[in-house]
Design a protein around this nucleic acid. Structure first.
Lengths: 224, 224
DNA sequence: GTCTATAGTTCGATAGAC
DNA sequence: GTCTATCGAACTATAGAC
């Protein structure tokens, strides 16, 4: 009897689809890592959240570091596949896609995935923030492995459709765009607090209608 | 009579002035918290870095949480005083200050302070990123206490000089601006890696020349 | 104020039954 | 594959000498 390896992603806690214990642990770790950070999260809490014995996590993932990386790999793989696919489509369908369409292709998958996470919107985005913004060697290796490839694709797309954007400014533009997206997706509650409830981050289209024009105007300001 | 001069020349921020043990511990905690995060940092490591016994930290600061808050309070107080002062000056000297001058007043103190940190540029910025981007109750309380007041001042300044900017868009604009600044100040090495060394984040004026036009154009794109 | 020593807790990981 | 039980290490915080 083998495992039926069906990489059904999505994997939110609102379970219609049946999950293997392996996948249940991954989903549980996502919530706990997001809430407490890598170091603050404990294997005990993850096991409790997943409804399994603590020893089972070590059977499947060996160590805490490996569990974290497996969780990042599953989620980032799904989102970055969508991004790469959207980007390819854009250049197949148009000679010169608009900057707006490219920026939207960058953010829509993450925002939609974040919002569709039942109960814990922004969980994975918060993990990304703390990982990508760490200067630690391990964290930067993870970022390089799972996020630099798609970053290079977008930077190349930017210089292609905006010829007056120098390569270093394109890199800055990408970094800035990611930074803007982080504040939008992390859902810390600060925007709502500062605006006394005026700012709502629960609707993907509203969010994109703020973030896309902001970033596109910023990028164009960096062209020579 | 002064106290004995035998202070350990630990890794303090600016090398010359002698510090009390209290201040030495605060500076050491800044480095360690920045490198390992709040939970990853240990009192033993902070004590070692500061060149004092571990027990002394508890004598001065009682708990790890209190030490962290004292560290945030010292550093944020200094930077935010500069920001508030610059903002007041701008409105005293001009009827309508430019958007550029306001955005620069927001970022210059942090960037300059980050660069002038001997050896560990971006240390405090990285602490801010992980604190402000956490959804935890304690972290958001700290953000509210030490950073929301200056945020409200800047949001008010934005709506004052850009009357066509709605209040909720001003809040989004401020959040986005902070997000952009984070990627600039955290100094993770990613920009250099993605650009194969082209992007240099060591010069305050170069950094401001990228970040200020980007953010100002983004904000103007959110006006009606 | 500053130190040494340690109490009391919690963690990641392993061993072994089923 | 999954569970229970537990080991050894590392942590925060305290007690008490000086």
């Amino acid at each position: 009897m083998q495992q039926a390896v069906q990489y059904q992603s999505g994997a939110s806690t609102s379970g219609a689809a049946p999950e293997t214990r392996y996948e249940t642990i991954l989903s549980a770790s996502e919530s706990v890592f997001a809430h407490s950070g890598y170091r603050g999260a404990t294997m005990r809490e993850i096991a409790e959240r997943a409804g399994v014995a603590q020893g089972l996590i070590h059977y499947h993932f060996k160590t805490k570091e490996d569990l974290f990386e497996a969780m990042v790999a599953r989620r980032s793989g799904h989102i970055n596949d969508q991004r790469a696919h959207s980007l390819t489509l854009l250049f197949e369908e148009h000679e010169n896609p608009t900057l707006e369409s490219i920026v939207e292709a960058l953010f829509r998958p993450t925002i939609v995935a974040g919002i569709s996470q039942a109960g814990d919107g922004g969980a994975f985005a918060r993990i990304l923030v703390s990982t990508a913004n760490s200067a630690g060697e391990w964290e930067q290796t993870l970022t390089e492995k799972y996020y630099d490839p798609i970053a290079h694709k977008y930077i190349a797309a930017l210089v292609r459709i905006e010829p007056r954007l120098s390569r270093d400014n394109a890199v800055w533009a990408y970094m800035f765009a990611i930074g803007v997206g982080m504040t939008m997706m992390a859902k810390t509650g600060r925007a709502g607090r500062l605006s006394e409830g005026l700012c709502d981050d629960g609707d993907a289209d509203i969010m994109l209608s703020k973030i896309v024009p902001f970033i596109c105007a910023g990028i164009r300001a960096l062209t020579d």
